[in-house]
Design a protein around this nucleic acid. Structure first.
Lengths: 242, 242
DNA sequence: TCACCAATAACTGTATACAATTTGCAGACC
DNA sequence: GGTCTGCAAATTGTATACAGTTATTGGTGA
């Protein structure tokens, strides 16, 4: 009993240690468990409000309770779980208010990162972003497009070179993913249109950052997220986030 | 072996369970341990770069390793500890770059909360802030002033009524406290001057929020934090945060 | 004196054990 | 039928055990 059982229906990342003697430590079980539960929540296999108990989870994944406990602690920090007063955990239920909140927080973080990126980027950074755009042009699945989109924004966070900003983003990232996944399940989206909209927006973002003007770059963040805001407002107008 | 030993030199919060059958659960050991280590770091009893190992800490606090492990996980999330590739934890060492970063993140969070507070506050909220100011007028110790200052900003976060903004603030809060504590240890400050400066700034903040204009309120956040920024720049100009 | 190596001590990662609490259910009682 | 009660099962909080890994120390040879 030492590795997560891979026989169930869920796919495994199979992140074996790269043999290239990188300074990469063997991923702790807790991390694997957290990642697995995270995927289950985002994919909807664990539905909102579902209880996530330590013992059944540990049994299901064929590990002891200790790594599960730590995983749950992390997932609670990430806002995917809420712990009740009796210590039990449930998958967080997202309301429309939560959607607005997540949107607002994301706007705050991205505006800051865009501004910093505009001030601090190197030509290599721009190339990297350009590459992401090229990859998205060729993407043929919604999943791939979604991943590349997230990666694009992550790259900009990294370009801003602020470990704490990146950290806050990582904290919110799971919720953003959950948010996106839920929306995609609710509304039927067409791959090509999503990709084209994203591409257009990303190209604008890249230009804004390249301009080295933080105000222009910051406005790009706002404009990129605006469509979501509009859609949210039309769905249910629930107090302004900004 | 079940409660944190209180015999050492460190004071204890003595947060006994309120017998008033509140829906308040008994605080877990992990939380108490985390709080204790947090205090030790902020107060400087645990110096920067010091190793915080599980077994000695568990022995010192007279608990088992499990609560300590969870506490360390939380404190790492809070940015007070960094874990090395071998799994060991050290107290984070703050450089001047970190000071700038923390200042920048705080400015981002506070600007957002000030804007939201301007839009959403009730008269009770303003009364509460006013009360904080009154208490500070009477404060006679630097410690008290510092606590009230933090409480003032915390209140504004709460007024903005965004659980995730509050959560990100809580995540950064320890580092802000550490930041402040270190500065106060480095530069000799006079109680009355700190209090007077804070009071003046807080009064301006209150007015800005009361104006219900998010732009004015946001500018208050900037102006409140500006002195720190100036001081930081004069100490060592290290790349603009904004 | 310095480099190298082995034995040992200490620490982390994970599993298991146990006590206290909570939940759920079955049957008694109104 | 509905509600109360008490027992059994499940779950959490904490402690301990054990294996594998890392740091340390002390000694040996050049």
């Amino acid at each position: 009993m030492s590795t997560i059982q891979t026989s169930t229906t869920l796919q495994t990342p199979a992140k074996v240690i790269s043999t290239t003697r990188m300074e990469r430590r063997r991923p702790k079980l807790a991390e694997q468990v957290a990642e697995r539960i995270r995927r289950d929540i985002i994919s909807g296999r664990l539905s909102q409000g579902a209880m996530v108990a330590e013992i059944p989870t540990a049994r299901r994944l064929n590990v002891s309770r200790v790594p599960v406990r730590e995983a749950l602690l992390v997932l609670e920090q990430d806002g995917l779980l809420v712990s009740e007063s009796n210590g039990r955990c449930r998958v967080r239920t997202l309301t429309n208010t939560d959607f607005h909140e997540i949107y607002g927080i994301r706007l705050m973080l991205e505006t800051t990162s865009f501004r910093l990126a505009a001030l601090q980027h190197t030509s290599a950074d721009l190339k990297s972003l350009q590459n992401n755009i090229r990859l998205m042009e060729r993407a043929r699945s919604l999943h791939k497009v979604t991943l590349l989109d997230l990666e694009f924004h992550h790259q900009i966070m990294q370009i801003s070179r602020q470990s704490r900003l990146l950290h806050l983003w990582q904290t919110m990232r799971s919720q953003v993913q959950l948010f996106t996944a839920i929306l995609q399940r609710e509304i039927s989206v067409v791959i090509s249109s999503v990709r084209d909209v994203s591409l257009q927006a990303h190209q604008a973002c890249l230009q804004g950052i390249a301009s080295r003007d933080p105000d222009i770059a910051g406005r790009c963040a706002l404009e990129h997220l605006e469509p979501w805001q509009a859609w949210l407002r039309s769905t249910r107008p629930e107090g302004g986030v900004r």
